[in-house]
Structure formats: C-alpha cells, structure tokens
Simulated scan of single mutants.
Amino acid sequence: MTLDVFVLLVRTPFAWREFLLQSWFVARVSILPTLMLSIPFTVLLVFTFNILLTEFGAADFSGTGAAFGTVTQIGPIVTVLVVAGAGATAMCADLGARTIRDELDALRVMGVNPIQVLVVPRVLAGMLIALMLSSLVILVGLAGAFAFSVFVQDVTPGAFVAGLTLLTGATDVAVALAKAALFGLAAGLIACHKGISVGGGPAGVGNAVNETVVFSFMALFLINIVATAVGMKVTL
C-alpha cells in the first residue's frame, strides 16, 4: 500500500476535495488536544530547567532552555501524541467503517482506485496537519513558557527573549518541521492500512483503531529518535 501511495502521489487526477475535507477533519479532532498538551509539557520543562538555572545563578538563560527543549523535543513529542491518538485513529475509524460497508469494493467495481481517491488524500492531509500542529505547539509552548517564567519565576522578559536564539536556529526549526512531516506520513500510512484491511465487522474496526494507536506510537517514537540523532549531527 505504501508503494501504491508513493506512485499515485504524482498521478492525476488528484482528489483535491477529499484532501481538503480530510485536512479539516483531522485538524478539527486534533487542535484541542494539541492546545491542552503543549502548555503543560512546556511549563513542566521550563519549571524544572529554571530551578537548575537559578541554583547556578543563570536564570537569564531560561529562554535558551525553553526554545531548545520546545523546538527539538516538546513540539515533536506532543505532535506524536496528538497525531497518533486523535488524527490517525479518526482516519482509521472512517476508512474501517467504509470497508465493512463494502464501499471500497464498490469503488473497485466502478473502476475507481480507492488508494488514489481515499488513501492518498488522507496521507497528505496527515502530513500537512502534523506540520501545522508542530508549528502551533512550538508557538503556544514558547508563549506559555514566557508567561510562566516571567510572571511566576521572576525571569527578566528581555533576557528570556534574548536567549531564545542562543542555541536554537533556523536549522533546528527545519529539522523539527521535517520530523513532524514524517510523523504525519507514518501515522497516515498506518491508519489507512489498518482501515482498508479491517475485517470482522464493527468489532474489527475497534480492534483496528486500537492497533493504529499502538503501531503509530511505536513508529513515531522510533522516527523521533532517528531524526533527532540525524538532526544533531547536522546542526552541531
């Protein structure tokens, strides 16, 4: 299926309407969990890091730790949790329901390739929304870290902002966004494969959704480890 998706990506016609609908669908189920997870994760990181910096008398470098942690790890990790836990499961359930209703077989009888009209738009939508979610997590997380550091831990606002780019540059942001795109690609492929290969009626759809979560977490954390190691080699 993955090979079919890559081959059909460059073939016409492209299902633009399905792509836009799936992008909105995945964004709708993912945006709230993203906002609810990004701030606590970042605040926890900043709170712990600021305690260490305060002991060393270097609280002005709070922004440096917040930016480095949020861009390189918090953003991708939260994206992993949301894409796999909300977006991928929603796509799997949708395709699984279509499969047990024999809609995919009906498309094949009419000469329509379900991979091209259903799977490819969902995989691309997963990539796009993961990319956007990662950007949102970074922005919201840094805003939350700034507010917590300045108003709770009495860090100087100017020093916090000045330290944001001390260790974190454009290359780190590019690596983080590349990881997010890979997360969306992997989660979309896993969800679509589980959805179109489901069997056993409604119970099979539930099992496929559970398997999607497990396999997506495994794949996405593995991608995060490999991509982080490669990114460190590139940026250092």
Rank of each mutant, 00 (worst) to 15 (best):
M1S: 06
M1Y: 07
T2Q: 04
D4M: 05
F6E: 00
L9H: 10
R11D: 08
R11E: 13
R17H: 06
R17Q: 13
L21M: 07
W24R: 13
W24E: 07
V29W: 06
T34K: 04
T34F: 07
L37H: 09
T42W: 02
G57F: 00
D60M: 09
F61E: 12
G65D: 06
T70D: 04
V78I: 05
L81Q: 00
V83R: 04
V83A: 10
A84Q: 02
A90N: 08
C92M: 06
G96H: 00
T99Q: 15
R101K: 11
D105M: 06
A106C: 04
R108S: 01
V109A: 03
N113H: 13
L118T: 03
V119G: 06
A125Q: 02
G126K: 03
L131T: 15
S135H: 04
V137R: 06
V137E: 00
I138Q: 08
I138M: 09
I138G: 00
F151E: 14
D154T: 06
D154E: 12
G158A: 05
G158V: 10
A162C: 07
T165F: 15
T171A: 12
K179S: 10
A180Y: 04
A181N: 12
I190K: 13
K194H: 15
V198G: 03
G199W: 12
G204M: 02
N207L: 12
N207S: 12
A208P: 00
T212I: 05
V213K: 07
V213H: 06
T228R: 02
G231K: 02
G231Q: 05
K233F: 15
L236E: 08
